[in-house]
Design a protein around this nucleic acid. Structure first.
Lengths: 342, 342
DNA sequence: ACGCTCCTGGCAACCGGTTGACAAGCGGTG
DNA sequence: CACCGCTTGTCAACCGGTTGCCAGGAGCGT
C-alpha cells in the first residue's frame, strides 16, 4: 500500500523527489544528486530531471533536507527592541545578505528582557545555522554559554574571543570633536547611556581621548535611560554644567534634550549645541535637524550574516574587516559656541 | 554498529530523544509521548523523562519533528520595506503573537519589488505554516495563486474571499473631519498616495464621504510618491488650491509637506493645517508635532498571526473582528483655519 | 477465582530527503 | 578478446522525531 498512500498524497501535498523520480524514470537519489551535486549525473539526465521538476512545480522540502545534512538554511536574528531605529538597518542588511544565498532569516525580539532573550535563543538555536545577537541584554557569561553550543556573532558588543561586528567610533568621534572645536566650543558634555551599555562606554572613552587631545574640557553626565525621556530629564544637569555643547549617547537622548532645551527657552544651537549617535530615521526630520555620528547598520547586519555563513562554509570568507566606519553628519543642531564662557 | 555511531554522536551533537530514552530506561516513543501528549504516559514515567531531559539539556529538534507532522512551527512575514515605520509595529506584533505559542517568525523583505517578493514567497512557503503578506506589491491574481497552495493573510489589502486584517479608517477619519471642521476649516485637500495603493483609495473614499457629510469642500491632490519627497513636491499644488488644511496619505508625505511649507514661509498650522496617517515613530518628535490618524499596527500583526495559527488549529479561533479601529491623535500641526477664505 | 476493561509502554513504519558503497555500462587499450 | 578505469545510476541506511497498532499487566466487578 505504499504506492497507494503515495498516490493519495500526490493530490493534496507538495510534490516530492519521489514524484519527480517516477515521472523522469529514475531513482529518487538520482534526482537528489541532479539537483544539488553539479556534474554528478549526466547532463542529459540532469536536464530531464530539472524539466520534470519545473513541470511539477517541485520545491524541495527544507525540513526534510535539513534532517540528514544538519544544515538548516536559516540564520537567526535576535534584537532587543524592533522599534529602536538602529535595529531597522540591521534587520534589513541581515535579511538581504541571507536572501542572497537562499537563506532565510528567523527573527525574535527580546523586548529588552534578558529572560525573554534567553527563551528566544533557546527556541531559535536548534532551528538555525547561526545566530546574530544585536543589542543583546545578556551577560558575558550567558553569551559565552550560548556560543558554546551555537555559532553566534554579536553586533555592537565585544567579548574576548567571540566574533562581533562593531562600529569603529573613532573616526566619527574625531570628526565630531574637530567640528565642535572649530565652532569655538571649549567645554562639552557627554550625556551618557545606561551603565550596562558597552556602546556607551566605548563612545565615552573615545570622546574623552579625542577631546583631551583637542584641548577641550569634557564631562560625563549620566547614566541616563537611552530614550527621549532620558534626554529630556538630563537637561537640568547639562544646563547646570555650563557646557556649550552636549554630545548625547544616541539620537533619542539628543532629541529629548533638544525638546527640554526648547521648553526651557534655550535655543539650539544658539544657546546649546546638541549632537547624537546613530543617525536614526527622524533625526533629519526634526527641527532643528540633528547633527549626529552615524554608521551604516545595513552593512553591520549584512556583515554579521556573511561571517556566520562563511563560518558555516556556505560562502567564502569575506575579506572585509570587522570594524565598521562611522561618519559625522552635520545638520542644524550644532553651531557656534555661545560666548559667555570664553 | 548502530550503537557505536550513536555513541559517537553523543559527544558532539545535541541530545536526541534516543539519548533521553536510554538514560530513562524507556522506549523513544515513550519519550515523545511524555513530552507532548499530556496524560498519555503515567505521571511517574513522565516525571522521570522530564527530569532526564532537563539533565541532558535536551531540546527537541524542530526539523525532525516537522517531517512526520507537517507542522513547521513557523509563520512567515513578508514586508515591502522594513524602514517603513508602519511595518515595525506589524513585525513586533507578529513576532509576539508567534512567540506566545512557541512559534518562530521567519522574515523577508521584498524591497518594493514584485519579483523579489515572489521569490521570497517561494522560499518561505515550504518552510512555514502560514504567511502574512504585509504591504504586498503583488497583483490580485498573483496573491490568489499563492493562497491556493499556502495559507496566507494580508494586512492592509483586501481581496474577495481571502483573509485579511485591515484598519477600519472610518472612525479615525470621522474624528479627523470633525476636528478640522471644529477648527473652522471649510475647504480641505487630500494629498493622496500612489494610484495602485489600495489604502490610499480607501482613505480618500472615506474622507470624501465624511467631508461631504460635514459640509466641507474637499479635493484630491495626487497621485504622489508616498515619501517625504513626495509630500515636499506636492506643496505647490496644495498651496495653489487655496485649501486651509491638507490631509496627507501618510505621515511621511505630511512631513514632506510641512518641510516644504516651512521653506516657503508658510507656517504650520497658522497658514496651513497638515495631518497624516499611521502615527509613525518620529511624527511626535518633529516640530510641529504631527496630527495624525493612527492604528495599532502591533495589533494588526498579532491578529494576522493569530488568525493563521487558529486556521492551523494551534490556537482556538479568536473572537476579535478583522477590522482594526483607528483613532485621531491631535498634536500641533493642525489649528484654526486662516481667515482669508471665509 | 475468573474474565473484562483500561492503562501503559514497546514495536515498527513513516515523513522526504542525503549519501556511502557498489554495480552496470561504456569506450579505450594492449 | 580480456581487461581496465571511468562515468552514471541504484540500493539501502540514516537523520530524529511521531503515531497506529498491539500486548502485557493492573485493577475491578461478580
Amino acid at each position: 500500500m505504499t504506492e497507494n498512500s503515495r498516490q493519495r498524497r500526490r493530490g493534496r501535498s507538495a510534490p516530492t523527489i519521489y514524484d519527480v523520480a517516477e515521472r523522469a524514470g529514475v531513482n529518487p537519489s538520482t534526482v537528489s544528486r541532479a539537483l544539488n551535486q553539479p556534474g554528478r549525473v549526466s547532463a542529459a539526465t540532469e536536464a530531464r530531471i530539472r524539466e520534470v521538476a519545473r513541470e511539477l512545480n517541485f520545491h524541495i522540502n527544507p525540513m526534510a533536507r535539513s534532517l540528514p545534512t544538519g544544515r538548516r538554511g536559516t540564520i537567526a536574528l535576535v534584537v532587543a527592541d524592533i522599534t529602536n531605529p538602529v535595529v531597522f538597518g540591521i534587520v534589513r542588511g541581515a535579511e538581504r545578505a541571507a536572501a542572497e544565498v537562499g537563506y532565510t532569516l528567523i527573527f525574535a525580539e527580546s523586548q529588552e528582557s534578558g529572560d525573554v532573550e534567553a527563551a528566544a535563543i533557546e527556541r531559535l538555536a536548534p532551528a538555525s545555522d547561526g545566530m546574530v545577537l544585536a543589542t543583546t541584554r545578556l551577560s558575558d557569561e550567558a553569551i559565552r554559554a550560548v556560543a558554546a553550543s551555537t555559532p553566534i556573532i554579536m553586533i555592537n558588543r565585544e567579548i574576548d574571543g567571540l566574533p562581533s561586528v562593531a562600529a569603529d567610533v573613532e573616526p566619527g568621534i574625531a570628526e565630531l570633536i574637530a567640528h565642535l572645536a572649530g565652532l569655538g566650543h571649549r567645554s562639552i558634555a557627554f550625556v551618557s547611556g545606561p551603565v550596562t551599555s558597552w556602546t556607551s562606554s566605548r563612545r565615552w572613552e573615545a570622546l574623552m581621548r579625542e577631546a583631551v587631545a583637542a584641548g577641550l574640557k569634557i564631562v560625563e553626565i549620566g547614566p541616563n535611560v537611552p530614550t527621549v525621556d532620558g534626554g529630556h530629564a538630563a537637561f537640568g544637569r547639562v544646563s547646570a554644567s555650563g557646557v556649550t555643547a552636549a554630545v548625547c549617547f544616541n539620537d533619542l537622548v539628543a532629541i529629548g534634550l533638544v525638546k527640554a532645551a526648547y521648553e526651557n527657552g534655550v535655543s539650539v544651537p544658539g544657546g546649546l549645541s546638541v549632537s547624537g549617535f546613530d543617525d536614526i530615521f527622524g533625526s533629519a526630520l526634526m527641527v532643528p535637524a540633528l547633527t549626529t555620528v552615524g554608521a551604516d547598520m545595513d552593512e553591520a547586519g549584512a556583515r554579521a550574516v556573511r561571517r556566520l555563513l562563511a563560518d558555516a562554509g556556505v560562502v567564502p570568507a569575506p575579506h572585509e574587516g570587522d570594524r565598521l566606519p562611522t561618519t559625522l553628519v552635520v545638520r542644524d543642531s550644532t553651531g557656534e559656541a555661545r560666548r559667555d564662557v570664553d
